[in-house]
Structures are given as C-alpha cells and as structure tokens.
C-alpha cells in the first residue's frame, strides 16, 4: 500500500514535470507547477517530514504561484 502510494505520486510528479516543460502557455505551467508542489507536499508528509511538507505547501504551492502569476501579468502569457 505504502509503495503503491509512492509509485502513484511519483508518476504524477513525473507527468506534471513533463507537462510544465512542454507547455507553451505560462499560466498553465504556473498552475501545473503548483500542483507539482502539492504532490511533493504529500510525499514529504509520507516520508515523515511534516515541517518540510508545511513549507512546501505554503511556499511551493502558494507564494511562488502568486509571484509567478504576478510576473506573467507584468509580461506575457505565451512563451516565445
């Protein structure tokens, strides 16, 4: 069960990382990266590191996403 959880989460991580690298839409990339951080947060929690999980959820999924969105708002949404 535990190994299955790890495998599913790692597959999700890999899929989201590939999607972030491939998409040309920066807004979609920022949202996907936020999802990547949430999965990473679950993995940290499963590894027994709740402090890192808390930081990952708040910084990775929350604050950096907002900063990315602000930067996209000041520049442009499409990658050239």
């Amino acid at each position: 069960m535990s190994a299955l959880f790890d495998l599913v989460m790692l597959a999700l991580l890999l899929g989201m990382a590939l999607a972030v690298a491939r998409t040309r839409d920066l807004l979609a990339a920022a949202i996907l990266f936020s999802g990547y951080s949430l999965v990473m947060c679950l993995l940290w929690l499963h590894r027994g590191a709740p402090d890192v999980a808390m930081t990952e959820a708040a910084v990775g999924a929350g604050v950096t996403t907002i900063l990315f969105l602000l930067a996209i708002g000041r520049t442009g949404r499409r990658e050239r």
Binding site: P50, D51, M54, T55, A58, V59, G62, V63, I66
Partner: peptide, 20 residues
C-alpha cells in the same frame, strides 16, 4: 513539527490572500 519559517510562510500567504 513547525516553527518560525513555517509560521512565517503561512502568515505571509494569509496576508497576500487578504491583500488580493
């Protein structure tokens, strides 16, 4: 588990949400 860094980012995220 937790501490200054974690509390700081949670509080910071709350302040950002509120200012949105």
């Amino acid at each position: 588990p937790g501490g200054g860094f974690q509390a700081g980012v949670i509080l910071g995220a709350l302040l950002v949400l509120l200012s949105v």
